[in-house]
């Protein structure tokens, strides 16, 4: 776990970037980090590659503005069947682009011009969240005494920390790893307000230097849409809390 490149070795990345230099250089960086990279310059081609991939990709890194199919639409199509981490690369300043991508289900994004170190950190965090989700690496937060059967209830929701599953009755809610991580952080102490800043640090692993306007807002919206708006309360000016 300590050597990231060893951990990432053999992981398959779908890179979608239409700029030749950025695409080639990013692919080279990812390859250097041990990823197996499939680079496409067209959104539709990338979608075909995604569908044909066997074994499936572990990570998607996509530009937002693309020929064929834009990044947000590509993300939406992928999300219909899969919770794979998607990190968007946005070249546009207007945040509508970014919000659209996040609403489509992207986990995170970086803005051009980006520093390779930043992209690397974002990808690693996205992969870590996805990795946390697997049954083998399931998280039981330290210091949190779970009930004997390992489940907690929040109204009509049942959280099974061991299986990392959120159920409503018999139905298992399809949360992406990032949404799950967000729910887990809020469930740490129901009723307690977590600020946007705290969630950025805990869920996305953002450091002191990094801040972002839309990531938390849009993810909370997405989480609400899936678990029911009544469970996650916005405390204006302070943050969010989970209601039992």
């Amino acid at each position: 776990m300590n050597d990231p490149s060893a951990r990432d070795a053999g992981r398959r990345v779908l890179l979608v970037e239409d700029d030749a230099v950025i695409g080639e250089a990013t692919a080279a960086h990812l390859a250097r980090d041990g990823f197996e990279v499939a680079w496409h310059t067209d959104g539709l081609e990338a979608w075909d590659a995604w569908r044909a991939a066997d074994p499936p990709f572990d990570l998607v890194v996509s530009d937002v503005v693309l020929p064929g199919l834009d990044g947000a639409s590509l993300t939406r199509r992928i999300r219909e069947t899969d919770a794979v981490p998607v990190v968007l690369v946005s070249a546009r300043t207007d945040s509508l682009d970014v919000v659209g991508g996040l609403e489509a289900g992207a986990d995170d994004y970086v803005t051009k011009p980006f520093d390779v170190q930043v992209l690397r950190a974002r990808l690693r965090n996205a992969l870590r969240r996805a990795g946390d989700r697997g049954p083998a690496g399931g998280v039981v937060p330290a210091g949190e005494a779970s009930p004997t059967d390992g489940t907690e209830t929040f109204g009509d929701l049942v959280l099974d920390r061991r299986a990392v599953q959120l159920r409503r009755g018999e139905e298992v809610l399809a949360l992406t790893p990032t949404e799950m991580r967000l729910f887990l952080e809020l469930a740490e102490e129901p009723g307690r307000v977590l600020s946007r800043r705290a969630l950025l640090e805990r869920v996305w692993g953002y450091g002191d230097a990094e801040d972002e306007d839309h990531l938390v807002t849009v993810h909370v919206q997405r989480l609400r849409a899936k678990v029911g708006a009544e469970h996650v309360e916005t405390v204006r000016g302070f943050g969010y809390r989970l209601l039992r």
């Binding site: 230099v21 250089a25 300043t93 051009k112 011009p113």
Partner: peptide, 21 residues
């Protein structure tokens, strides 16, 4: 100014990414 900055963005990102290699 905005157009110039927008247009500079992609080549500068390429330059930055390539320079890191």
């Amino acid at each position: 100014t905005a157009d110039v900055a927008h247009d500079l963005r992609t080549p500068v990102t390429g330059l930055l990414t390539a320079a890191e290699l």
